[in-house]
Design a protein around this nucleic acid. Structure first.
Lengths: 214, 214
DNA sequence: CAGTTGTAGATTGGATACAATCCACAGTAT
DNA sequence: ATACTGTGGATTGTATCCAATCTACAACTG
């Protein structure tokens, strides 16, 4: 009866909580993650923690060594470069495959999201911008029939870098203009252009980010 | 003291055992994987099984639904198309990034492997061919500094499709000729050509495979 | 007879308890 | 002094137990 609540299991709640902590920098790179500590800290047993950690390992946010434990992965500028490269290429392919299967409702929702983001920027509500931006990208890909690549894109979007760009105020404006250009390409049913726009959009973000880290 | 034995933990042993069972078709697509059954069958508790299943989920070999359980993923020809597309693009990038960091020993080992594969073909030892082919591809990528993409390539190579192409005898001959062409491109330090060769090599395999499934 | 409700069995999710492993440091021998 | 050994504490890996959830089928109601 509930809409899209996949958050029933404890593991998922723990996972999102830990992910946030890492993304926001509350848990710093290199920091050891001791299962017992986290368990008592969050008021659950070690089991959900373990599985959450393995999920985060798959997302590349933590590293697990057998019998040694987990720690937050340190992130080099090389890693960021790789991440944005992969994401740009994959999302480009995904939206191209998705385009022709988007419904009118999808299209309207996308428009709505772009307008919301304009509002977010005006109000300086970066939290909301991040959410809307995420939904925009995922919705734009939703028509793609290929599953693996969609999962990868989702991981890359939800990983830590989603939040970082929003810390650079100027870039959000440019970003949303690019979103509008994507919708135009969508209306003109031009998959090649759309792919290029998406790829450029993400690479640009990645570049400003790496430049910022110097 | 031991070389590269990361196989100490039970989970890992269980994981590789289950993976084999799925790849070889001993566990068939759609088949439900009940934790208790597997546990008693393998003489361990449910815990290692659980974590193994999640590992296999990450590799795309099983699907897990909360509170419902795991089952071997059925594979459509669409999935194969996607897999080979992704693998070809990724490996192309990876070998391009890897090329200039390969040592002379690496180069010699690659030559060795190609010759071994020729022998495998002559003797019809497909098991050995698969192993050597895997090592060839991984070694060719080993110089790449990007980690995420290497992990993905490894997963794609080790996933079930590694074994299938070897079932088509004719294709192995062509494959190994293409391997030799790659080494030539390597010697000529032509990353673009190398990337193209790799991409084509994998796409061709994928295409013959999909054609075979009709 | 269709549809709903409820109950039992099966199976997974989570908690607790125990075993194996690692790590640091102290003590000893050379 | 240095290198080796071993011992204790910390932490992860594995097993077992209990609770939550799902599924199927039967009984009840309209």
């Amino acid at each position: 009866m509930k809409a899209v609540m996949e958050f029933e299991t404890l593991q998922n709640k723990v996972t999102t909580k830990l992910r946030e902590a890492i993304i926001t920098g509350n848990l710093k790179p290199g920091e050891r993650l001791i299962q017992d500590e986290l368990a008592s800290l969050m008021g659950v047993s070690r089991m959900p923690i373990r599985e959450a950690l393995r999920d985060l390992e798959r997302e590349g946010l933590v590293e697990i060594l057998p019998h040694k434990g987990a720690q937050v992965t340190g992130i080099t500028s090389d890693d960021i470069e790789e991440l944005y490269f992969l994401r740009s290429k994959m999302e480009a392919v995904t939206v191209q495959k998705s385009m022709n299967f988007l419904t009118n409702e999808d299209r309207e929702r996308l428009q709505e999201l772009v307008e919301k983001m304009d509002l977010d920027i005006a109000l300086g509500d970066m939290e909301s911008f991040v959410e809307n931006n995420k939904e925009f990208h995922l919705l734009l890909q939703s028509g793609c029939k290929w599953k693996k690549i969609k999962v990868l894109c989702k991981q890359y979007i939800e990983g830590y870098p989603a939040h970082v760009p929003s810390l650079i105020p100027d870039t959000t404006l440019v970003s949303n203009e690019e979103h509008k250009a994507m919708l135009k390409a969508l209306d003109e049913k031009d998959p090649i252009l759309l792919g290029q726009l998406v790829e450029h959009h993400i690479m640009r973000t990645g570049n400003t980010l790496t430049r910022l880290l110097e």
